[in-house]
């Protein structure tokens, strides 16, 4: 398996634990975790795209 895919469960884990350490209520934790997870994945995809373009035909 391409190692990049391992970052998805890692991002999910970080989002859940970080959000759980910020708030107490279940709904708020889940809501924040989903938002943080999406932000992280979008950021990672952007970084991946930039690096892919920079290394194109190298």
């Amino acid at each position: 398996m391409e190692t990049t895919w391992y970052l998805v469960p890692l991002a999910a884990s970080i989002s859940l634990v970080y959000s759980a350490s910020r708030y107490e209520l279940r709904d708020r934790i889940v809501q924040r975790a989903v938002r943080l997870f999406i932000t992280m994945i979008v950021f990672l995809v952007l970084v991946y795209a930039v690096l892919f373009l920079l290394s194109f035909r190298l």
């Binding site: 634990v17 350490s21 910020r22 708030y23 107490e24 934790i29």
Partner: peptide
């Protein structure tokens, strides 16, 4: 470390409501 801190001091920002 975040979990330990949460057990000791409670959540960092608030309850959530």
């Amino acid at each position: 470390v975040l979990a330990i801190w949460d057990a000791l001091e409670g959540p960092a920002y608030g309850i959530g409501d």
